[in-house]
């Protein structure tokens, strides 16, 4: 089970990183989203994976670790805010620059002064 879980995290990271390395803004946004999934699952795994042990008192005999869950919960929401910000930035950049390339180097300033 753990092997499978770790594999999923690894695949998410690999796919996310590949997309982040693309040259256009939209795949980069997707990559960030994908990596957020990976990060959240990774953090979540630090509480280990258990079935049917929700951390609600009185519902089961043992409880899964609630702390990573609380951290991941806020991470999901913040991750959304970040994705939203980046994608809006991408829209703005496309509107201002006329393209959606991530390469920002302006033509080299010639003959300074």
């Amino acid at each position: 089970m753990e092997v499978l879980y770790a594999t999923c995290v690894g695949v998410l990271f690999a796919c996310g990183v590949f997309l982040i390395l693309r040259a256009r803004t939209f795949p980069v946004v997707l990559g960030l989203t994908m990596m957020s999934y990976g990060v959240n699952l990774f953090l979540f795994a630090s509480g280990r994976i258990h079935s049917n042990k929700a951390a609600v008192l009185g519902e089961s005999a043992q409880y899964a670790d609630p702390l990573p869950q609380a951290l991941v919960l806020t991470a999901i929401v913040i991750g959304f805010a970040m994705t939203a910000f980046v994608v809006i930035l991408a829209i703005r950049a496309r509107a201002d620059l006329g393209h959606d390339h991530v390469h920002a180097r302006f033509p080299k300033i010639k003959g300074k002064e």
């Binding site: 879980y5 770790a6 690894g10 990271f13 690999a14 990183v17 990976g38 990774f42």
Partner: peptide, 25 residues
Amino acid sequence: IASAVGVIIGSICYAIMTRPLNSIS
């Protein structure tokens, strides 16, 4: 790069999950 990152992170994740949990929870 992507595969290397995936492999490393996956391995770390695996290494964490197979070790005893010492939680403050």
